[in-house]
Write a protein that binds this DNA or RNA. Sequence first.
DNA 1: TCTGGGGTCCTAGGACCC
DNA 2: TCTGGGGTCCTAGGACCC
Length: 394
Amino acid sequence: MRTIFHIDMDAFFVSVEELYDPSLKGKPVVVGGRPDQRGVVSAASYAARKFGVHSAMPLRTAYKLCPQAIFIDVHRTRYSEYSARVREVLDRFSPIVEMASIDEAYLDLTGSSRLHGPPFAAAHKLHQMMKQETRLNCSIGVSGSRLVSKVASDQAKPNGILWIAPGQEAAFLAPLDVRKIPGVGKVSEQQLHSFGIRKVGDLARLDEKFLEQKFGKWGLALAGKSHGFDAGGWFDTFLGVSEQPKSISHEHTFDEDTREKDLIESVLAHMCEKVGRRLREHGLHARTVQLKLRTSDFATITRAYTLDGATQLDTVIFETARALFRANWKRTAAIRLIGVHTSGFDANEGQLSLLDGEKNERWQKALSAADKLRDKYGEASVSLAVGMQRKPPR
DNA sequence: TCTGGGGTCCTAGGACCC
DNA sequence: TCTGGGGTCCTAGGACCC
C-alpha cells in the first residue's frame, strides 16, 4: 500500500488576488473579467459562493446573483508565479511530486514516516509549511490511491486535512454522489441516474458485467473507481510526470460576433504567433495544425491538417490555419470564436529540401529575435504583417 | 443563465497497408 | 471476385478537468 497525498489550493485564483490586494479579504470576489463581458467565472471567493456563484458560470449570471461582488480580470502570470512557489514547498517536502494542474498536486510519501511521521501528522506538517511559506490555504487528502486522496481533499475543503485509513476507502466513498468521482461529469451523471445509480455505493454494489455491458470500458473503470482503485489499475498510482505538453493551442472569443474577414484573419495570425512562440519555448515541432470555428449559433467545428514535416514557424502555422479557415468559412456565418491548435509533436523538425532548409533557418533566426523583442517591449511590438492589417475600429 | 481558455483522453470511421 | 482481419494514421467530435 502506498501513501499518496493530494494537495489542492483553496480558491486559488481568488486567494492570490487577495495577496495582491488584502482589502478583498472576506468580500465576495469573482475572478473572470468584467460582468458585462463574454466569459465565465474562473474562481469565486467563499463569500461569493454563498450567493450561488460558482466557477464556469457566465459572468452575466454571476452579476445577477451577486451584483455587489468585486469582479477581477484573470491574471494568469500571477497564478503561475504562486504555483511555482507552491511547487517549491512540495519539492522540499517530497522527491516525488506531480503537479496535476496549476493549483493541485500529488505527492508520493510511501515510506517517509521516519522523516515526516505517520500520514496524518505528515499532512499537518505540510499544511503548516504551505501556509507559512506561501500565505495560502490548501486542503490535503491522504490515502493509498490518487483517486481516494483527490476525493478526500475535496471533502476536506476549506483548509482541512482528511486521511482515509487503509481498508476504509469504499466506506468513505459509498455515501457520496457519483458526481464526486473524478471523470464523472454532467453527462455520465445523468446516464447513471437513469439506471437509478446515484451514490458511489450504488455503483459499488452493481455487477461489473452489467456496468461493462452498459458503459463499455468506461463502465469497468467506474466499477474500480467505486472501490477506490485508480483508473488504470495499481500501476496508475505511481506518480510520474510527463514533462512535455501534448498540444499547444490558443483560442479567442470575439466581443461581438463578426463576419469581417480581415479582422478574423488578423486575430488568427496573432494566435498563430503565440502558438509558434510557445512551441519554440518548449523546443517542440508540430505536425498537425487544427482550426476551430464557432458561429453565433454556438455550433462548433474543428478542421485539421497534418503537414509532411513538423514545424514551429508562425508563418507555416498561419498559412495552414488560414487555408483551413478559407475552405470552411461561409461568409454568411458570423464568427463567435476562432482557435488554433497544434499537436503531433516531433522531437525534430521535418526534412526539408536544401532551399527550404535555408529559408527555414532564416525564419528561425528572425523569430527568435522577435521573441526577444517581445520579451523586452511587450506582445504588441512585433507581429506578422497580416496581424497589422486590422482595420481601425469604426 | 447565454455559454472562456487551456488542456487530456476516448471513440469511431475511413484510408491504407500487409 | 463479392469480400478477412489486424495495425496504424488521420480526422472530427465530445466528455471532462481546472
